[in-house]
Design a protein around this nucleic acid. Structure first.
Length: 483
DNA sequence: GGTGCCGGGTG
DNA sequence: CACCCGGCACC
C-alpha cells in the first residue's frame, strides 16, 4: 500500500538513518562503514597505525584482491563490518607529519571528532586530487611502520576499493599524506595498477601539497557507483572485469572498455571539495555480471560521481555534486550529450575510448540500473545523509537497505532496452538520480517521480502492450525500465 | 485523467 | 507462479 510504504521509509530510513545526519556524516548509523573509514583515515594519516593488527589481516585480503583478480564482495562487507571496534584502537598516535593538521584532532578521543576529522580529511583530499588508485599490495604487507602512511591508506583504500570504494581511499591517502612523500616503495611494482601514476601524483601532491593542479591521465571506472580511478588501463580493465562484470569470464575483453573512461584532470586546486573524482567507494558490484549490459539507465554518474564523498562510502549524494556527474557523463556519448550544466564540470574528463556509441549507452544504462540496486545498500552504509548509490547488496547491513534491497534488487536485472528511450530517459534519469541522491536517504525509494520515468507504457504505448514487460502488463513495477 | 505500482485475488 | 485488477499516489 502506498500509504504504508511512505511510512516505512520515514521511519526506517529517515530518522534512523540520518539521525543527525545533517551535521555529521558519520554517526551512529553504520558503525561498520563509518568506523572503518575512520580507521582507514587514521591509519593513513598516522600511518603508523598502531592498530594494525586487524588491519593487517584486512590488508592481506586486500592485497590479495588487488593481485588476484577476484574480489569477493562478501569479503568486503565482512571486513567492513568487522572493523567497527578497531577505531578505538587508534591510539593517539603522534602523528606529526600529517599535513592536515586540523583533522588530526581525531586522535582525540571522541568518535565524533573522528567523524569530523574524517570529513575534513575527505574534503581536503578531494580538493587535492581526484585520481586515485587502489594500491598495490606490496606496501600493505610491508606495513605502515615505515614512514608511509600511504601504505595503510592504500590498504584501507584497497579494501574499500576492492570492495568498490577503493578509489577514493587512494586519493585520500594521497591527499592526506602529502607530507609523507609516498615512498617509492609504496608505489609498488605492479604494473597493472599504473602505480607510477600514483607516484607522480603523490609526488606532486606532496610537493605541491594539494594546492596545485597536477595533471594526470587516468582511467576512471564508470560503473555507477564506482568511481575508481586507476592509472593503467589494464588495471582498470581488470577492475571492471572483476568487480563489475563478474569474474570476468563471460565478457569479451572488450567489454571492459565500456566501463571506464580515460580522464585527464587537473586536480587540485579545485575549489570544490567534492568534485574530485571520487572513486566511488560505494561500490559496485554486486550485480551479477551481466554480460549483456543492457539497461536502460543512463549513466548513473550522478550518483556515482558524487560518491566521492568519503564518508560513508556513500556515493554521494551528500552533496549533490554535479561535478561528479560530469566525468562520467562525458563518456556516454560525446556527441550526444553535450553536457548538462553540471556535467561540464571543472574537470575535464574525457571519454576515452568508448568505442561504439551505442555500446556506451548500454553501459550507461546498466550502470543506472545497477546503481539503483546498490543505492539502497549504499545508503545504509553511508552514514550521513547521502544516500547512495552504492552497492552491494551484500553489504546490506542496515535497516534501510533491507527494504530497499528487496525492492530494488528484484528489478535490477531484467532488461532489454529501448534504445530510443534510453537516450531520452538517460537525461531524465540522471536528473532523477540526482534528486534522489541529494535528498536524504529516502529517495532511494521506490516511488520516484513519475514524470521522469519512462516505463513500458510510455515507451511502447498502450497499443503495443505486448511489448511491455510482464510486470508492466500486470501493473507491477516495471522491470524493463526500473527506476 | 494518465500513469506507475502495491496489495490482493484468482486459477 | 502467472495473470489480473482495485486502488492509491503522483504527475
Amino acid at each position: 500500500m502506498a500509504t504504508k510504504r511512505p511510512g516505512d521509509r520515514t521511519s526506517s530510513s529517515g530518522p534512523q538513518s540520518c539521525p543527525s545526519t545533517a551535521v555529521r556524516p558519520t554517526d551512529s548509523r553504520q558503525p561498520g562503514a563509518e568506523t572503518q573509514e575512520t580507521l582507514v583515515y587514521m591509519q593513513c594519516c598516522g600511518q603508523e597505525a598502531p592498530n594494525l593488527t586487524e588491519r593487517n589481516s584486512h590488508r592481506k585480503i586486500m592485497d590479495r584482491n588487488h593481485q588476484g583478480p577476484v574480489f569477493v564482495p562478501q569479503g568486503r562487507t565482512e571486513r567492513v563490518w568487522t572493523h567497527p571496534p578497531a577505531p578505538r584502537q587508534t591510539t593517539t598516535p603522534t602523528i606529526p607529519s600529517c599535513p592536515v593538521s586540523a583533522p588530526y584532532s581525531f586522535w582525540s578521543p571522541g568518535s565524533v571528532e573522528m567523524d569530523e576529522i574524517m570529513a575534513a580529511m575527505v574534503l581536503t583530499s578531494l580538493s587535492c586530487s581526484s585520481v586515485v588508485q587502489s594500491s598495490p599490495q606490496s606496501q600493505n604487507d610491508s606495513l605502515p611502520g615505515s614512514s608511509s602512511g600511504g601504505g595503510d591508506m592504500e590498504c584501507g583504500g584497497g579494501e574499500l576499493s576492492d570492495s568498490g570504494s577503493s578509489g577514493y581511499w587512494s586519493w585520500d591517502h594521497g591527499n592526506v599524506s602529502p607530507a609523507l612523500s609516498p615512498s617509492v616503495a609504496e608505489m609498488d611494482s605492479s604494473p597493472d595498477e599504473g602505480l607510477h601514476m600514483e607516484l607522480e601524483q603523490g609526488g606532486e601532491l606532496h610537493t605541491a601539497a594539494r594546492s596545485k593542479s597536477s595533471f594526470r591521465g587516468a582511467y576512471r571506472c564508470l560503473w555507477p557507483s564506482c568511481g575508481k580511478v586507476l592509472t593503467s588501463s589494464v588495471g582498470m580493465k581488470r577492475h571492471v572485469r572483476v568487480l563489475h562484470l563478474g569474474s570476468g569470464s563471460e565478457q569479451s575483453p572488450r567489454e571492459e572498455d565500456f566501463y571506464y573512461t580515460k580522464i585527464s584532470c587537473e586536480a587540485p586546486a579545485d575549489p570544490s571539495p567534492v568534485s574530485p573524482l571520487p572513486p566511488d567507494p560505494s561500490l559496485v558490484s554486486p550485480l551479477p555480471p551481466d554480460p549483456s549490459p543492457v539497461s536502460p539507465l543512463p549513466p548513473a554518474h550522478l550518483p556515482a560521481s558524487s560518491p566521492h564523498v568519503p564518508w560513508g562510502s556513500c556515493g554521494s549524494p551528500l552533496s549533490p555534486d554535479p561535478d561528479s556527474g560530469l566525468q562520467i557523463t562525458s563518456l556516454g556519448s560525446g556527441s550526444s550529450r553535450p553536457s548538462s550544466g553540471p556535467e561540464s564540470a571543472p574537470y575535464q574528463h574525457r571519454p576515452l575510448s568508448q568505442s561504439a556509441p551505442s555500446s556506451s549507452w548500454q553501459i550507461q544504462t546498466d550502470h543506472l540500473y545497477q546503481a539503483c540496486a546498490p543505492l539502497q545498500v549504499t545508503m545504509s552504509s553511508c552514514s550521513p545523509s547521502p544516500c547512495c548509490w552504492t552497492p552491494p547488496p551484500l553489504t546490506v547491513s542496515n535497516q534501510h537497505s533491507h527494504h530497499n534491497t528487496q525492492v530494488m534488487t528484484g528489478r535490477c536485472r531484467s532488461v532489454s532496452v529501448g534504445e530510443q528511450w534510453l537516450q531520452q530517459s538517460s537525461a531524465t534519469n540522471r536528473l532523477t538520480t540526482l534528486r534522489a541522491a541529494s535528498p536524504s536517504r529516502s529517495h532511494c525509494s521506490f516511488r520516484k517521480g513519475r514524470g521522469e520515468a519512462k516505463k513500458c507504457r510510455k515507451v511502447y504505448g498502450v497499443e503495443r502492450k505486448e511489448q511491455w514487460c510482464t510486470a508492466c502488463r500486470w501493473k507491477k513495477a516495471c522491470q524493463r525500465f526500473p527506476d
